[in-house]
Each structure stands twice: as C-alpha cells, then as structure tokens.
C-alpha cells in the first residue's frame, strides 16, 4: 500500500529554472533538495508539494557542472544549496546567501564526492 503518489520528472539543467518557476507560480512549496552520487554522476532532486501532491524534479549532472540557484524563487533554498556545495562540491551559481563553503565545515573536503561507496572499511578512520 503506497502512502502517497510520488512522481519524478527528469529534466535538463538548462530547463531547471523554468520548471521551478512554474512550480513557484503554481503555488507549490519547496520540500527539499537532495543531491546523491550515483556512479560518477550527481543526481539532484528538487521536491515540491501542493495539497499533498508530491512532485519531484530531477537533474543528472556531471560533478563539475554548475547548477543555477533556485534561491531567487524559493528564498529558503540556500540551506540546501550551501549544503550541497559543502558536502558534494556542487557549484551553485547565484545563491542569495552564500556561505562560501562554510555552511558545514568538514574534516575532509566534499566528503560525499570522495567517499567510497560499497567499501567495507571505515570511510574515515582517524584512529
């Protein structure tokens, strides 16, 4: 039994702003932005919701591709984008509040970019 329907649309980076703008004008709220590393590519999910309709926009990018910021449309998006930058090293262009890599300072730079998936040993053994 599914709790709710969740749709995912995959789009190009170039279309992102237009698509998000459409959600914005449609009265959707931004639920979250997630970056995941799948293979060598980054998958970024932008989730929106209106009246319990959960819709997901996905872009798949090369780790070095610059992503436009959506913080111009959703003011609060800067937390996700800064986090994405600090953990994955994704370059986000035009954030309204840019922490310049100081949002979450980590022992290793961009830990999620460099982490070894499926590795059996501790990912960062400092002992």
């Amino acid at each position: 039994m599914k709790i709710e329907e969740q749709t995912t649309t995959e789009i190009e980076v170039a279309n992102l702003i237009g698509k998000v703008q459409a959600y914005r004008s449609g009265g959707y709220r931004l639920v979250q932005v997630t970056c995941s590393k799948v293979g060598d590519l980054f998958e970024i999910n932008y989730s929106f919701e209106k009246d319990l309709r959960f819709e997901n926009v996905r872009i798949i990018i090369d780790p070095d591709t610059e992503v436009p910021s959506i913080s111009g449309m959703y003011w609060g998006a800067f937390v996700y984008e800064n986090e994405m930058h600090d953990l994955f090293g994704v370059q986000v262009k035009g954030m309204n509040v840019d922490f310049h890599g100081n949002f979450i300072r980590t022992a290793v730079p961009y830990p999620f970019r460099t982490q070894v998936f499926k590795g059996e040993g501790p990912c960062h053994d400092r002992s």
């Binding site: 100081n102 949002f103 979450i104 300072r105 980590t106 830990p111 999620f112 982490q115 070894v116 998936f117 499926k118 590795g119 059996e120 501790p122 990912c123 960062h124």
Partner: peptide, 16 residues
C-alpha cells in the same frame, strides 16, 4: 547563523 558544530556525517553510514 552558522552551523556545523555537530555535523557527524551519519548519512554515509549506509555504506557500512
């Protein structure tokens, strides 16, 4: 605001 004082990075533990 500034955060990161208790960032542990537990999401990576899915791999362990």
């Amino acid at each position: 605001p500034s955060i990161g004082y208790i960032h542990r990075g537990l999401e990576t533990l899915v791999t362990k």
